[in-house]
Nucleic acid binder design. Sequence first.
DNA 1: ATTTGTGCAAATCGTTTGCATCTGA
DNA 2: TCAGATGCAAACGATTTGCACAAAT
Lengths: 146, 146
Amino acid sequence: MPRLQISDKRKTRLAEKLGIAGLRVTEPRLALAHLLFRHGNRHVTAETLLDEALRAGLKVSQATVYNTLNQFQAAGLLRQVQVDQARSYFDTNIDAHHHFYVEDEARLIDIAADAVNVAKLPDSPAGYDVERVEVIIRLDKKAAKK
Amino acid sequence: MPRLQISDKRKTRLAEKLGIAGLRVTEPRLALAHLLFRHGNRHVTAETLLDEALRAGLKVSQATVYNTLNQFQAAGLLRQVQVDQARSYFDTNIDAHHHFYVEDEARLIDIAADAVNVAKLPDSPAGYDVERVEVIIRLDKKAAKK
DNA sequence: ATTTGTGCAAATCGTTTGCATCTGA
DNA sequence: TCAGATGCAAACGATTTGCACAAAT
């Protein structure tokens, strides 16, 4: 029984998205999809998404948030970004692109694919295909000017 | 009371390495350092290193392996590589370089820095410095030829 | 002497799972 | 109707931590 208001038009659009991904259309999934996809590209963790959902008045369990994130990722609606041992980040931007990561703030920032040019790549070991090339630029807060 | 045999010459060399890094020279650290640094570049996890230590007859605890890996990393003797949510990898190669990662086999492979050419990098957000540029090439087992 | 390291076991934390119950097709 | 989804709480697995004891400086 979500307390979140979603227009019928939007519901239909999200339901379609879930359907195409091969996922059943359920209320928790619709609501989480709404939160995830309503405002451009985002980075969430299970924790931040659950918080957001609860604050929005949704009655979703932690388990459902985890399941949903994993299913969305398996279905290609989200991409997992591995920058921090402590927690999993999910990115609503599923196009090829890269990331800045500010460790001190646990903050991810997208980098458009064409802003990075990987000019030379080594051959992959025999028997293996490249699945994805990830560029992660780790950032530090700038030291005080001397 | 480690059962591992380390020559005095090697001990001295490792002790020096620890000393420079600002770490006290203790038997567990010497022994783990020996395992880590004796044969070129390696990738270990706490689990694989502990296994190796126990098989070598060392009496080290899990806690010490974790502590040692973290201290070595903080001291710059090891670099942490984050490719898998499940476990932390440590790389004895601390020079700038990149990685292949075979997810299905949880296997890391070094890529020499000069085998990758990142020709264009975006400006970092104002107030931040680039700490490190990481390129991770995720590999899949090649699909059967059709 | 005092600081730092070590081992052990318990604690922590993100994530997963088992199972009874509900829901969507 | 009934496979699949959800919630709850318990389980899990990697990592960390508290504390008593041992080793380094």
